[in-house]
């Protein structure tokens, strides 16, 4: 099943202007915002988020838990892939073919799903280059960092869901849609990679009681760890609040920095995730601080040491 991953995540939120402020600061671009209707917030490759007021009648019905995530739009590689999804899922559920050619259905736990031929535009942008001893990646005179360098989300990376039935979620995404399990945090759940995307995960599931079913966080990829550190620091300097990070996860190797948001879920900056193919042997580790990160740091305001006593304060 040639699925790439989430093209769009659609939210029904409590405070549209707050989401607009937050997502603009986070670095997504929005051309159609109104306080009454919300808007579409895009990363550089055209993947992104749709924000609507939670009582917007155009939205799919909310889960009983009140989660703000109302729809995941998954991109597939081509029309044949879309037909394959339709044929597979039509075996045991209603799959609607909408006027725009996309499919609409639900997964086994009631999360609303759409599938479409992806509209993401591949980027022609270099990733971060690191100079190591005897192995420089940047040419002479090329700078590693400047204070005002761009640090914008490049593509929607992954969505993490609280789900009451992990076996049901795996049964649907792995056995019906062909996702691969890359690794598992025992006690939480599996990381999943769709077949047409080498990223370590586009989905991760965390086992919870039924009343918590919903979105836990979403993440966009940045161009590298320096962009991630800059983007997060700019958020901190503007008064936004970190939830977790910066740090680097073990499973996936991705750098992370999570921020609380008015979307009622965490919104993460992510960079330098591992990629895999079907030769990969999945790992397993018990969920907890040790397995969750290689290292974890905490932001502080800029400071510098000086010469003698009585130097700069900070």
């Amino acid at each position: 099943m040639q699925i790439i991953g989430p093209d769009l995540l659609v939210f029904g939120v409590d405070d549209v202007p707050a989401c607009h402020e937050f997502l603009s600061a986070y670095g997504l671009d929005c051309a159609d915002y109104t306080p009454e209707k919300g808007g579409t917030y895009l990363a550089l490759d055209g993947t992104g988020l749709v924000i609507r007021p939670r009582n917007d009648p155009s939205l799919p019905l909310a889960l009983k838990t009140g989660t703000t995530l109302r729809l995941q739009v998954l991109g597939v590689v081509d029309a044949a892939a879309l037909d394959a999804v339709e044929a597979e899922l039509s075996r045991d559920r209603q799959v609607l073919r909408l006027a725009d050619g996309s499919l609409r259905t639900q997964d086994d736990q009631g999360f609303e799903l759409a599938f479409r031929v992806t509209t993401r535009k591949p980027l022609d942008m270099p990733g971060e280059k690191v100079n190591a001893p005897y192995a420089p990646a940047r040419p002479a005179n090329a700078l590693g960092v400047t204070q005002d360098m761009p640090a914008k989300p490049r593509t929607l990376s992954h969505v993490v869901l609280f789900v009451p039935d992990i076996d049901g979620a795996v049964g649907f995404y792995r056995d019906r849609l062909g996702f691969r399990i890359t690794d598992t945090l025992t006690g939480a759940g599996p990381f999943l990679r769709p077949q047409a995307n080498p990223d370590h995960h586009t989905h991760f599931f965390i086992r919870t009681p039924p009343y918590m079913q919903g979105i836990e966080h979403l993440a966009f990829h940045l161009g590298g760890p320096t962009e991630l550190m800059l983007a997060g620091s700019r958020m901190m300097e503007q008064g936004y609040e970190s939830f977790w990070g910066p740090g680097r996860h073990k499973f996936g190797s991705n750098w992370f920095w999570y921020f609380k948001s008015p979307l009622a879920c965490n919104v993460e900056f992510d960079a330098d995730m591992d990629t895999h193919d079907d030769d990969w042997a999945p790992r397993e580790a018990p969920m907890g601080p040790e397995a969750s990160q290689a290292f974890l740091m905490q932001w502080r305001a800029k400071w510098a040491p000086g010469g003698g006593p009585g130097g700069p304060k900070g």
């Binding site: 409590d14 549209v16 707050a18 989660t67 703000t68 918590m212 609040e241 879920c265």
Partner: peptide, 17 residues
């Protein structure tokens, strides 16, 4: 200081709603 929900009726945790 952004502790309230949109309608300003409840305190809200903005990690998971």
């Amino acid at each position: 200081d952004a502790y309230l929900n949109g309608a300003r009726t409840h305190l809200a945790c903005h990690a998971h709603g």
